[in-house]
Computed example of a mutant assay.
Amino acid sequence: MPRTSDVTAPSILVEDVRKDFTLRHTHSIKETFLAAVRRKPLTTDFHALNGVSFRIEEGESVALLGLNGSGKSTMLKLISGVLQPNRGRVLTRGRVAGLIEVGAGFHPDLSGRENIFLNAAILGMTKQEIEERYDDIVAFSEIEKFIDTEVKHYSSGMFLRLAFSVAIHTEVDVLLIDEILSVGDEPFQQKCIARIKDLHAQGKTLVVVSHDLDMVSDLCERGILMRQGRAVFDGDSKEAVAHLRA
C-alpha cells in the first residue's frame, strides 16, 4: 500500500526560507550620537536562516537540533506563524499549536479557572471544546485546590503546570514544542512526555526543539540538524544527535 505521504500534502512544507534580523548596537540617544560621530555602524544584519528547505509528513515526530544561535527556535516560530520569512515560504496543514512560550496568554489578575478558558481560546479551542476538556486540564495540572485563586499568587511551578496542561489538551494536528519539557519536577516532566507520546500515537505531527538530546532521540524518529542558519543533516534522530555531539 502507498504511504500517506505519497497521496496527501505534507503537514509542514518549508521552501528556501531565509529570515533576517536587524541587530542594534546602541541602547540610548547618547550612544547613538557617539557612534554616529565615530562613524561606527548603528545596526548590522543577522541571517538567522539562510535557504532552509524540508517537508514533514503527517504523523511524523521531528526534532530541530543545533547549538545556540543555529536557527532552530526561529524556524519553529516561522512554522507557528509568529514570524514571517524574508524569502521563501512556510506552509502548514491543519490546526497548529505552539508550546513555545507557555502561559504567554495568562492574565495574573484572573483565576486559574478563568485563565484556562482565556488561554485555551487563544490557542484556538472553542468554548465547547474547552468545557469538554476542563476537568482533564485541571486534573493533569494537579493544582485542583488552587484553581479559583488568582494566578498572580501561584508559584512558578504551579503556573507552568497549569499553562502546560492547557496547551497539551488543545485539539491540534501539529504540535510545536520549544524547550518547555523542563516544566515542574521529574514526575510531572515524565507525565508531560508520556502525554506527548500519546498524542503522537494518535497521529499528531510533532516538531520539538530541546537541548535534552537523550529525550529528543527517544521522543522523535527524525532529526534535522541546524548550523549557522542552514540544515546540514536530515535523517534518523539518533544519527542527528551523534552528529551534533561530534
Rank of each mutant, 00 (worst) to 15 (best):
Glu186Leu: 15
Ile180Pro: 10
Leu199Lys: 07
Leu181Thr: 08
Glu179Ser: 11
Ser182Cys: 11
Ser165Arg: 01
Glu179Val: 10
Glu186Gly: 15
Asp178Phe: 10
Asp178Met: 12
Ile196Asp: 04
Lys204Phe: 06
Gly203Phe: 06
Cys192Pro: 08
Ala167Leu: 00
Asp185His: 04
Ser165Trp: 05
Val174Ala: 04
Ala201Gly: 14
Asp198Pro: 14
Pro187Gly: 04
Gly203Glu: 02
Phe188Thr: 04
Ala167Cys: 04
Asp198Ala: 14
Gln202Pro: 11
Lys191Thr: 04
Lys197Trp: 12
Asp185Ala: 07
Gly203His: 06
Val166Ala: 01
Ile196Ser: 07
Glu186Ile: 12
Gln202Tyr: 09
Gln190Ile: 15
Asp198Leu: 13
Ile177Ala: 04
Ile168Lys: 00
Ala201Cys: 12
Gln202Glu: 14
Ile180Asp: 08
Leu175Thr: 00
Val172Met: 12
Glu171Cys: 07
Asp198Gly: 14
Arg195Tyr: 02
Ala201Phe: 13
Phe164Trp: 03
Glu179Met: 12
Lys191Arg: 07
Leu175Cys: 07
Arg195Pro: 05
Asp173His: 06
Ser182Leu: 08
Ile177Asp: 08
Leu176Trp: 06
Leu199Arg: 11
Ala201Val: 13
Lys197Val: 09
Glu171Gln: 12
Asp178Ile: 11
Ala194Trp: 14
Asp178Cys: 09
Leu176Pro: 13
Glu186Thr: 15
Glu179Leu: 08
His169Tyr: 01
Ile168Arg: 01
Ala163Thr: 03
Leu175Met: 04
Ile193His: 11
Glu171Val: 11
Leu199Tyr: 09
Arg195Ile: 05
Leu176Ser: 07
Gln190Gly: 15
Asp185Gln: 07
Pro187Asp: 01
Lys197Phe: 15
Ile180Arg: 10
Val183Pro: 00
Thr170Asp: 02
